[in-house]
Structure formats: C-alpha cells, structure tokens
C-alpha cells in the first residue's frame, strides 16, 4: 500500500484514533491517581484528574477538527479535479467519521465537569 493510501486510511480513522487516545489517557490517569490515593494531587493549582480530562479532550478535539476540515476540503475539491471513485469515497467517509468523532470526544469530556474524581 503506497504512502498516499496509508495517509488516506489514517485520515479516515483519525477522529476515532484521537478518541481512543483521549479515552486511554483519561482512563489511565484517573485509574492510576485514584488507585494510588492521589485524588487530590494538583499541578499549578489545578486538580490533575479534571485537568487531564479537559486537556486531553481539547487536544484530541482540535486534532480531530483539523482532520475533519482537511477531509472535508479534500471531499469538496473533487469537483475541481478528477478523482477516482475510491478517493472520493474515502474523503467523504473520512469527513463523516471525523465529524462523528468530534461529538464522541466532547461527550467523553463532559464527565470532568459533573463528577468528583475518585468518589
């Protein structure tokens, strides 16, 4: 598979990979800090657990937004130059997947504002 094709596949699932990264980070940090009794640990005056969730959410959301915009532009560009059916399809599905991923990432970040870290 060529580098361009690999890039297309990665762009197609970029949002879901970003969600997986967000999920792994927030679950790992919460489990570790709560498991070790470091629920109140703070960094620069902020509690680490909610700060991690917010930071991970912001970073992965931004990355996914970038991927969504990029894939959307690729998709819109199809009228300007001839692209194969597979290319058009990949760009469109990438836009859809990255768009859905934005919602899912936000959905997972909400808990930071609702629940106590280790209760």
């Amino acid at each position: 598979m060529s580098g361009r094709r690999t890039g297309q596949v990665l762009l197609m699932v970029a949002g879901l990979i970003a969600w997986a990264v967000q999920f792994t980070i927030i679950y790992a940090v919460t489990s570790t800090l709560c498991g070790r009794g470091w629920a109140d640990a703070a960094f620069l005056g902020f509690e680490i657990v909610p700060m991690t969730i917010v930071s991970a959410t912001l970073v992965t959301f931004s990355a996914t937004l970038l991927a969504a915009v990029w894939s959307f532009r690729n998709h819109r560009r199809k009228g300007e130059q001839p692209v194969s059916g597979a290319d058009s399809f990949m760009n469109h599905v990438a836009t859809l997947i990255n768009g859905l991923s934005l919602v899912i990432i936000l959905w997972h970040g909400i808990s930071a504002f609702i629940l106590p870290a280790c209760a």
Partner: peptide, 20 residues
C-alpha cells in the same frame, strides 16, 4: 467498585455506540 469518574467514561462510550 471502580471510581464513578471511570465508570462515566464507559457509560459515555456505551451510549455513544448506539449512534452508529
């Protein structure tokens, strides 16, 4: 007995998967 915060991540994913 896992922390509620941890449960919430999985609860969120469990409802999110209903969308697709």
């Amino acid at each position: 007995g896992l922390p509620k915060m941890s449960l919430s991540f999985f609860s969120a994913a469990s409802t999110a998967v209903a969308v697709p």
